[in-house]
Each structure stands twice: as structure tokens, then as C-alpha cells.
């Protein structure tokens, strides 16, 4: 059981991802699917950020003024890993963009069929 406890953060994100995945596939309301997609993407983002953490009092990856002026050598273990944060900024932006386009399509469909249930729209098309 030891590995579960040491890595419990990973289990949390897996559960969150499954919730989002289920919502995307199983629900028929378009908005619920979109929200599920967002949960799914957020879980992945959380996972990435959790990679960056360093135990032992690491602070944010912003150099204090003493370090920034090069007065003494910077201790790497004192600062969090900045790279995953960077990647996730991009991923958050991408997920918002996808959310926007998905919602625009949902608005298009609502204007036309006046409903947001997928099965009713399918019936209306046929």
C-alpha cells in the first residue's frame, strides 16, 4: 500500500479524469459534455503541475532580489521546477479556446433546433 500513499496525488487526478471522461461520453446534454471535457482537461493540468513540486520548503519559481542580482550561487533545490508551469499555462489557454469553440457550436445548434439534448437534435436532423 506504500506506493499509493506516497503518490496519492496521482490517484486524485486519475479519479478526476475518470469523472470527466464519463461525463463526456455518457451524458446526452451538450453542455454537460462540454463541462466533462473541461474537467478532463483540468485533471491533466493538475497532474502536470504536481510534477513540479519539490518537498523541503521549495518556494515559487520567482527569484528573490538577492539571487536575482547574482550575489551568490542560486540553490536549485530551493525553487520549484518552472517548466511544467509553463507548459500548463499553454494547456490552460488551449483548453479555454476549445471550450469557446465548443460553446459556439452549441449556440449554433440551439439557434437552429431550440434544444440542447443530443438525441432530440439527431431526431430533428433525420
Amino acid at each position: 500500500m506504500d506506493f499509493i500513499i506516497a503518490k496519492y496525488n496521482y490517484w486524485i487526478y486519475i479519479i478526476l479524469m475518470m469523472v470527466g471522461f464519463y461525463a463526456m461520453i455518457a451524458k446526452t446534454n451538450l453542455i454537460k459534455k462540454i463541462i466533462g471535457m473541461n474537467i478532463f482537461q483540468t485533471a491533466i493540468i493538475l497532474f502536470f503541475v504536481s510534477i513540479a513540486y519539490k518537498k523541503g520548503g521549495a518556494t515559487l519559481p520567482i527569484l528573490t532580489s538577492a539571487d536575482a542580482h547574482g550575489e551568490h550561487a542560486i540553490q536549485v533545490a530551493q525553487y520549484l521546477n518552472p517548466l511544467p508551469h509553463v507548459l500548463m499555462l499553454t494547456a490552460i489557454v488551449v483548453s479555454i479556446a476549445t471550450l469557446g469553440v465548443a460553446l459556439a457550436i452549441a449556440i449554433m445548434m440551439y439557434r437552429k433546433y431550440n434544444t440542447l439534448e443530443e438525441d432530440e437534435i439527431l431526431k430533428a436532423i433525420k
Binding site: 451538450l30 459534455k33 478532463f40 491533466i44 502536470f48 457550436i105
Partner: peptide, 29 residues
Amino acid sequence: EGAPLAAFRYIILGTIGACFYLLGVGYLY
């Protein structure tokens, strides 16, 4: 007619695909 729904399905499935790819990148990283 019917294109928005087709595009919506494609969004859902395509995003799953891209997110799985991102997960792969994360594990490798």
C-alpha cells in the same frame, strides 16, 4: 444541415485524443 452536430462530436473525440497525447508527454517528462 447537421454539420454542427458532426463538428461537436468531432470536438469531443478529438479533444480526448489530444489530451491523451498530452498525458503521454507528461508521463515521459
